[in-house]
Design a binder for these strands. Structure first.
Length: 584
RNA sequence: GCCCCGAUAGCUCAGGCGGAUAGAGCGACUGCCUCCUAAGCAGUAGGCCGCAGGUUCGAGUCCUGCUCGGGGCGCCA
């Protein structure tokens, strides 16, 4: 165990946890050194430890007696102002003001703001976004894209090596009709339409012809065969189609400020050459068997509608490969060739069964071992007004690009009278609108299903991205008025004269824990909630504590606290992929 | 039929590994711009945590059953 009062972390819970563990071990014996200190936020103090009650039975002592002994030892620690027993054995712990102030000063001086790098860096493949070629990116792609992006940023900042994998759908039978339609309209016209984002028009026209024109349908079927058999001209057309829509994704990603680039494409077709070998290996391992003419794997514990074993279908009876095979190939490739320690699939919750089965088969095959962790991070579906799954048919879909436009327009509307310069106005509106949009999706649990509500998603007041951006802008404004560069303020001393200052400083110390929490289950909303608490604590401080007008020692301290708050907000929002405008 | 997810304030949602009096935003209602940005702040009202049992010192949280909603379950991806 590390020294509880040393090390890089500023996290009070970690520090108190170590203190409680040490005290428990001293009172009850070394066998108790690893007991969970059960540190929780408290309504009655800064924190409480509930350890005494859980240890009472094991130690055959009365919980209050244990609590008294531990509390006495805690009270002697420099970090602790008071430790008192209450109720059945709660230990209410308040931290010393000068300890909080010292930690905050250290955090300000630390380039990493008290967030240590991972002790054991991993190589992590994060699979997210995954739009389909020649299909519109709609609102349903927003969350997987921004959640994946935030997870990637957090993992990288913690020192992990991240491989971004945009598993776009660029293969399958629908390409027959798309390619025939491409030939009909001409390459240039198709390019213009696709690059302009008129993707659904293109797709629906192709689909219409497929349904109405038997000759077209027949051509399409033949085209699929040509594609799969590697006919050079067909491949050329296919690449054209893929390239055109990739260009369109890129513009969306750039507008959203998402890290994905062409270099991160890991399309379905990438695995085509591996599929036969994947099937062979699974078959030779005895994991896959022929059933009704198809090559299937039957992972234990999965049963179908009629109670029979439930398969994944690797190779269809017609010899073609399905997406089960592609995903198996991707797992094998990512673990064996890329050397991944962890796989995170930020993919819709409707794929839960699929991933459970895929992972199970990969374990049977020995591709996933105890050393490799595979997570499906389910993304909740977007529902229509009827509460049911949001379907993109019948023109009811919301294009992601329109949503972005709307977000920026709404933000610009708010500041229309505030900034004369249209360029500046647009830049602010862009940062704020995109910030609102992304935060709106990042601040809820990623698997919560939701009815699309633009007013909620694009809100500019309350617990929103702009609220956090606004707090940062106000801090910058303070420094601007003082003619100071906030980045230059790197040291205290910080003094905590008021409750608002203390509450803000204490809150800031939890930054590292909040960042860490994101990686546990790929949940950026935990960081979002923390940042909202920080901004909220700051605005209370802002209302109550004049900074520039304060007398000298207090002024310096408050400037330091502001500088620290700004850096935590900007860094934290950056980890969520949200930019912060200089002014608002 | 089986499996997964959900049900918390009027609405949208948070609630690490079980802790004391269940939180936030929006909406409603009261106040607050001679003062570092009112995209803000302070406050009030609003709860059978779906229902019924169980586990235990203690359950929104864990277990069982049920109700309702969503999703999934052999050759689409």
């Amino acid at each position: 165990m590390t020294d509880p009062e040393a090390g890089q972390t500023t996290d009070p819970e970690a520090v108190l946890g170590a203190l409680v563990q040490r005290a428990v071990a001293a009172e009850l014996g070394p066998a108790y050194a690893d007991a969970d200190p059960l540190i929780r936020p408290s309504d009655f103090a800064d924190f409480q430890s509930n350890a005494a009650m859980s240890l009472a039975r094991r130690a055959d002592r009365r919980p209050r007696d244990i609590a008294e002994l531990v509390a006495d030892r805690l009270a002697a620690a420099a970090a602790v102002a008071s430790a008192e027993v209450s109720g059945p054995g709660f230990i209410n712990i308040s931290l010393a003001d000068d300890w909080i102030a010292g930690q905050a000063s250290a955090q300000l001086d630390d380039p990493r703001l008290g967030v240590p790098r991972a002790e054991q860096p991993q190589r992590v493949v994060v699979d997210y976004s995954a739009p389909n070629v020649a299909k519109e990116m709609h609102v349903g792609h927003l969350r997987t894209t921004v959640v994946g992006d935030a997870v990637v940023r957090v993992l990288e900042w913690l020192g992990h090596e991240v491989i971004r994998a945009n598993h776009i759908g660029d293969w399958g039978t629908q390409f027959g009709l798309l390619l025939e339609h491409l030939l009909d309209v001409g390459e240039q016209a198709a390019y213009e339409q696709l690059a302009a984002g008129e993707i659904n028009v293109f797709y629906q026209a192709a689909k219409q012809k497929f349904d109405d024109d038997p000759a077209f349908a027949e051509r399409s079927r033949r085209r699929v065969v040509s594609l799969q058999s590697g006919d050079p001209e067909t491949l050329r057309l296919w690449q054209l189609l893929v390239h055109d829509t990739e260009q369109y994704y890129s513009t969306i990603y750039q507008r959203l400020g998402v890290m994905l680039t062409d270099a991160d494409l890991a399309p379905e077709s990438f695995y085509n050459d591996m599929l036969a070998d994947v099937c062979d290996e699974l078959e030779s391992l005895g994991v896959a068997v022929i059933s009704d003419g198809a090559l299937c794997a039957f992972p234990p514990g999965f049963t179908a509608r009629d109670g029979s074993p439930q398969p994944i279908i690797l190779r269809k009876s017609d010899g073609g490969y399905g997406y089960d095979a592609t995903d198996m190939a991707a797992i094998r490739y990512r673990v064996r060739d890329l050397g991944a320690d962890r796989l995170i699939y930020v993919v819709g919750s409707d794929q839960s069964l699929h991933f459970a089965m895929i992972f199970a088969v990969a374990r049977q095959a020995g591709w996933l071992t105890d050393k490799v962790r595979a997570d499906h991070a389910p993304i909740g579906m977007v529902a229509g007004a009827d509460g049911k799954r949001f379907r993109t048919r019948s023109g009811g879909s919301v294009k992601l690009s329109s949503l972005i436009d709307e977000a920026i327009d709404r933000a610009e509307e708010v500041i229309r009278d505030r900034y004369d310069d249209p360029e500046q106005r647009h830049q602010i509106a862009q940062a704020v609108g995109i910030g609102a949009l992304k935060y709106g999706d990042l601040s809820v649990a990623r698997d919560s299903r939701y009815v699309l509500d633009l007013d909620r998603l694009l809100a500019l007041t309350g617990n929103t991205g702009p609220y956090l951006q606004y707090a940062a802008a106000r801090i910058r404004s303070i420094f601007g008025r003082a003619g100071l560069d906030p980045a230059a303020v790197r040291s205290g001393p910080i003094e905590l004269g008021t409750a608002a200052e203390r509450a803000l400083a204490l809150r800031l110390l939890g930054f590292g824990r909040a960042v860490e929490d994101v990686t546990l289950a790929a949940e950026p909303h935990r960081l979002a909630a923390f940042l909202f608490d920080v901004a909220s604590a700051f605005t209370t401080f802002y209302e109550q504590c004049p900074v520039l007008q304060a007398p000298t020692p207090t002024r310096q301290s408050r400037l330091a606290l502001c500088a620290l708050t700004l850096r935590v907000l900007v860094t934290g929002l950056g980890l969520l992929g949200i930019g912060v405008p200089e002014r608002m």
